[in-house]
């Protein structure tokens, strides 16, 4: 099996290396992928949306539909993991539980450091979400950092401590809420007579904006929704994985 796998992989690799000759040279500014669509984004993004970070603008505005369903993929993954681990028959005879030390006491130094660190982490995450228009960042990164702060709490204390701050039910609600914020902004655009997720129509209801700034503000709302969903779903995945779906004892 190993020899067969090696031969297969080797032949595939040689063929791929041979096709690599047809690719444009590395760093070629005039290669085909750098020519058509991306030049439009680079030249028009700032004029269209007043957002300097092109990546955020394309993510939340031009390709908003794509991002909405990527977010729902994460939501579905969280639900799927809860479904896989929580239900189904258990086989108690074969179940070799790993003997965790009885609810670890917790180290004073680690706990104090964590208590000081978590507010800073969460503040940074909020900054990353809110400032994603002007610097690297956005809903995905900020949501992941928020989830990491809850996981850090769970590692330094125990799972129940983290779950008392963000319970499983609440995490599901946040995840739902994030997606609803995203889809809701799209539906408001429809109600105002524009297409789904066509943010420029929102200037009719946002005070003191024109159709360019409306896109920038709507992007912030969308990023907040993405941040909620990513945070709650990744934390939910962690709690399910670490407690074998029981949400009782874990790290």
């Amino acid at each position: 099996m190993k020899v067969f796998a090696f031969c297969l992989v080797f032949v595939t690799g040689v063929m791929l290396v041979m096709t690599a000759q047809d690719f444009p040279a590395w760093g070629d500014a005039h290669s085909a992928p750098n020519q058509y669509l991306s030049t439009y984004y680079i030249q028009h993004t700032y004029r269209d949306t007043a957002v300097p970070n092109i990546v955020t603008a394309v993510l939340a505005d031009y390709r908003g539909f794509d991002t909405m369903f990527e977010t729902s993929v994460i939501f579905c993954a969280g639900l799927g993991i809860a479904a896989i681990l929580s239900f189904g028959p258990r086989n108690p005879k074969r179940r070799k539980r790993l003997g965790l030390p009885p609810s670890a006491e917790g180290d004073l130094i680690i706990q104090t450091t964590t208590r000081l660190l978590i507010p800073v982490t969460q503040l940074f995450a909020l900054y990353v979400i809110a400032h994603g228009h002007h610097s690297p960042g956005g809903g995905f990164q900020g949501g992941v950092i928020l989830a990491a702060s809850f996981i850090l709490l769970s590692l330094a204390y125990d799972l129940n401590m983290a779950l008392s701050r963000l319970s499983d039910r609440l995490a599901l609600l946040w995840g739902n809420g994030g997606l609803l914020i995203y889809a809701g902004i799209g539906l408001i655009c429809v109600a105002l007579g524009a297409h789904f997720l066509e943010y420029s129509a929102l200037h009719a209801i946002l005070p003191a904006t024109d159709s360019v700034m409306a896109r920038s503000h709507a992007m912030l709302g969308v990023e907040i929704g993405v941040g909620f969903t990513v945070m709650s779903m990744l934390f939910s995945i962690y709690t399910q994985l670490v407690s074998l779906g029981s949400l009782e004892d874990g790290l």
Partner: peptide, 8 residues
């Protein structure tokens, strides 16, 4: 997220 499903 899909890695999480695999681990589950």
């Amino acid at each position: 997220a899909t890695l999480g499903v695999g681990l589950a």
